[in-house]
Each structure stands twice: as C-alpha cells, then as structure tokens.
Design a protein around this nucleic acid. Structure first.
Lengths: 119, 119
DNA sequence: ACATTCCTAACTAATATAGTATACATAATA
DNA sequence: TATTATGTATACTATATTAGTTAGGAATGT
C-alpha cells in the first residue's frame, strides 16, 4: 500500500509551488534543487500535471511553471490519480467487470469503503 | 496504492473461515477451491497468519485450520500488516529516522493522516 | 506403515517502478 | 535572425517487488 515516489515527488513539487506563490513563475530547476529531485525526473513527472490543468507552464527563456488554481482548490487525490492512476486499493472498485467474482464478492465493499476513507 | 494479491487472498481466506465458523476445522484445500487460489500459494501465505496468532492449525490427517478469535475481534489492518507490512503510505510515517527531511517535511503530516484514515 | 494434512525454503518469471538519455519545441532577447 | 533558456516527448535500462511454482519435510490419525 505504499505510494509511488512519482506521486510523492509530484506532491512535494506542488507544495513547493504553493509556498512560492508570490513569484510569477518558478523554475523547474529550482524546485528540483530545493526538493532534491533530479531535474530530468521532475520534468518527466510534471508533464501530466501540466496537461491535466494543475500546473501552467511557459517555455523559453524567462519561462517557468505556476499553479493554475489556488492551492486550496487542488485536491490531492486528484493529483495522485494523475500521477499513479486510481487510488482504489483494488481495480474492481472502479470497474466491477474486470473480475467475475465482483457480484458476490464480500470483500469488495471493504475496498470501496477504504477508497472513500483515503479520498 | 494497490493492495497486494497476497493480502487480498489472505483476507478472502479468513472470510471464508469466518463464514464456515460452524465447522471445527477447515481444509486449506477446500478454501483454495472455493476462493480459486492455488493451494501451494495459499499454504504459503497462511503461514504468517498462523505464527501471528490469527489462525490455529492442526496438521496431519483430520487436520485443518480455524480462526483463533471470533471474527469480529480480528482487525483487518492487523491482517494486512502481517501479510504485506505496514499499511503506512510512506515509510517515514512509522520511522522518521529513515529520511533526513522528516523534521521539516510538510507532506509527512498528510501521509500520517492518510494512514489513520486507512486504518 | 500409510495416507493425509499443514509447513518451509528456495527458486523463477513476470511486472512495475525509478531513473536516464536523447532529441525536440517554444519564447525572449541581444 | 541567432542564441540562450527554458519546457516537452519518447524510448530505453536497471532495479526492485510481487506472484507463483517446485520440491520436499513434519506431524497426526487410522
């Protein structure tokens, strides 16, 4: 039940952005340095956050990134889902069809409850 | 954040035991068949549940397994911890020393809250 | 003695994750 | 328009984890 470093790093990066809210744009390079994440890896995992509308970016010289919404409007379960897929502890919670036991499976309710608690 | 099949199978097995509470002993073989888990794999994962006192076993002919406590006294977080280790989404929640950032890490509180919700 | 059942350890294969390498695209500005 | 500073995208590799098998051992009842 561990969360991936991908999601951990992503959330750290967002938090870094939130804390530096005053500046217009933040450089990936600086986040990488402050958060001790390799720049190529950070670039790698920030991409989906940009395409999904969590982060705004401008390229080129004097470019950088910033949050698209106010920090309090960003739900972390959304971020985790973007970075590592559904937070559901088992797949059948999101899609009962993938398991022939779903209909009569008594444990499934449990996992569903767990997903809600995590969210 | 997926749960391992190890833990899923283990919980299914325990539930099977709970539902067949009336019988004295249940055969691993039968659980394996009902739950569609390979017998060697089930034997494999039931072992820690025996040594940790969740399940009682007797070997040999007319042997079998049964729950040591009443079903309602078995907490599933305990079972998950036995089968796949701590339920904490990051290791630093259980042991801050493993990460030099723990002291000033703002995300750590989040993971701690998550662990509590999951439990 | 033998059949039946749980127990243990070692191994293998498959999958997922972390991280790097390489090349490209865009924007500011000299 | 060339240069520089950024972000964007794809493909690859190494490592770790997980799932599952194999093979045999130990205890118990008949």
């Amino acid at each position: 039940m561990k969360i991936s470093t991908r999601a951990r790093y992503g959330i750290r990066a967002l938090l870094d952005l939130a804390l530096n809210d005053d500046k217009e744009r933040i450089l990936l390079k600086d986040i990488a340095q402050r958060q001790e994440i390799s720049l190529p890896y950070l670039e790698h995992l920030i991409t989906p956050l940009i395409t999904k509308g969590i982060v705004r970016s401008t390229r080129g010289s004097r470019g950088g990134i910033s949050l698209r919404r106010r920090p309090e409007e960003i739900r972390l379960n959304e971020v985790v889902e973007i970075l590592e897929g559904s937070i559901a502890p088992v797949e059948c919670v999101d899609d009962p069809k993938i398991c022939p036991r779903s209909e009569f499976c008594v444990t499934r309710d449990l996992w569903d409850e767990m997903k809600r608690a995590m969210n």
